[in-house]
Design a protein around this nucleic acid. Structure first.
Length: 303
DNA sequence: ATCCAGGAAAACG
DNA sequence: CGTTTTCATGGA
C-alpha cells in the first residue's frame, strides 16, 4: 500500500485527536500492558478493539490519534485523556526503582473499562496467564454477545449479565474450568441487583472492596483490579505473583518468599504500597507490572 | 511429566 | 481464627 495515499485518506476520512504537548499518552503502552483483554494490534500499528457495542480501530503517530468507530469524546474518556498523568506520575515517583519503571513505560494510562466486562474478566483471570484470559473473554463474547459488523469482519460485544444468566447451560462451551459456576452465579446476582455499578462507585475504597468480594470468584486480587481498571479507585494495589515477586525483591525483603500468598501478606504489601506511593499507588502498580522482567534483577525475567 | 499462569473457595486444625 | 488443599485449562 502506498504510504502517502494511506496518510491522505486517513486524514480526510477518519476523526482524530491531537494531544497537547503536556498530555502524555502512549497507545501501545496503554493497550499492551495487560490491563485489558480485547484489543489486538496489526503489524502496521493499528489496534482493533471492542468497547461496549462499538468496534474501534485506532493508531497513534506522534501526538496524533486517528480512529474510527467512536466519536472523539468517547475515545478521550475511555483512555482517560482528561486525567493529569504528569501530576500522577510525579506523585508516585518516590524511589529509583519505580522511576526506572516509569521511564520505561512513558505514556501508560489506566483506562476506563466497562464495569461488568471488567468484573467477569478478572473472575476469569485467576490462576491463568494473559493469553488464556483473552481466550476466555473472547469465547464468552462469541457465545453470548451481540455480533457487530466492522470493515467486513464480525466482532462480538461483551454480553449483558442477563444474556449469560439465561444461557448458562452453554457456559461450559467457553472452557472456563472451575470458574464456570463463579461467572454463572455472579451473572445471576448482578442481573437481580439494581444498578450495582452505582453502589460500588458511591462506596469508599475499602467498603467497595468488601462489597465486590461478596461475589463468587472475586477475591482480594480481582477486587483490586476491578476497582482500579473499571472504577478508577487509584488507591487499589493488586498483588499478583509478579507484583509480589517485584515487591519482595525491591521493597519488602522480609516478605515470605514461599509460593502461597496469604491474606495477611497481601495486606502487608498493599498497605505498604499505599503508604509508600500514596493515593495513586494503583498507577505505580501498573507501571511496575508493565515493566516486569525488563528491569531490575535479571533472574526475575522469564526465558 | 512437571511446572506455571494478573487466585479463590472449601476444607481443615 | 489462620493455614493448607483443591480446583480446570493450555502452553512451555
Amino acid at each position: 500500500m502506498d504510504w502517502t495515499t494511506d496518510l491522505v485518506c486517513t486524514a480526510r476520512i477518519m476523526p482524530g485527536i491531537t494531544l497537547t504537548s503536556d498530555q502524555q499518552f502512549s497507545l501501545d503502552q496503554t493497550l499492551g500492558c495487560g490491563q485489558v483483554f480485547r484489543w489486538d494490534h496489526t503489524a502496521d500499528g493499528w489496534w482493533y478493539g471492542v468497547i461496549g457495542e462499538r468496534v474501534v480501530r485506532i493508531r497513534q503517530v506522534g501526538r496524533r490519534l486517528t480512529f474510527k468507530g467512536a466519536p472523539a469524546p468517547f475515545i478521550s474518556h475511555y483512555f482517560s485523556l482528561d486525567v493529569n498523568l504528569r501530576a500522577i506520575v510525579s506523585a508516585i515517583d518516590r524511589d529509583p526503582f519505580i522511576h526506572a519503571a516509569i521511564s520505561q513505560c512513558t505514556g501508560l494510562r489506566l483506562i476506563r473499562q466497562p464495569k461488568w466486562e471488567c468484573l467477569v474478566s478478572y473472575i476469569c483471570s485467576t490462576n491463568s496467564n494473559i493469553p488464556m484470559i483473552r481466550h476466555r473473554i473472547s469465547a464468552l463474547a462469541r457465545q453470548f454477545g451481540k455480533p457487530v459488523e466492522f470493515e467486513g469482519n464480525t466482532y462480538y460485544a461483551f454480553p449483558e449479565p442477563s444474556s449469560i444468566s439465561c444461557g448458562e447451560h452453554l457456559l461450559p462451551v467457553c472452557r472456563l474450568g472451575y470458574r464456570t459456576p463463579y461467572v454463572s452465579d455472579t451473572a445471576g446476582k448482578i442481573t437481580e441487583m439494581n444498578r450495582w455499578e452505582d453502589t460500588i462507585t458511591a462506596l469508599p475504597f475499602e467498603d467497595a472492596r468488601s462489597e465486590l468480594m461478596k461475589l463468587k470468584g472475586i477475591g482480594p486480587k480481582a477486587a483490586d483490579c476491578i476497582l482500579l481498571f473499571a472504577f478508577q479507585k487509584y488507591e487499589a494495589f493488586p498483588v499478583d505473583v509478579w507484583i509480589r515477586r517485584i515487591m519482595q525483591q525491591n521493597y519488602l525483603p522480609d516478605l515470605n518468599a514461599g509460593s502461597h500468598l496469604t491474606t495477611r501478606e497481601y495486606d502487608i504489601v498493599r498497605h505498604f504500597a499505599r503508604q509508600h506511593f500514596g493515593e495513586y499507588c494503583g498507577y505505580a502498580q501498573e507501571y511496575l507490572y508493565a515493566a516486569r522482567g525488563s528491569s531490575g534483577d535479571a533472574s526475575l525475567r522469564p526465558e
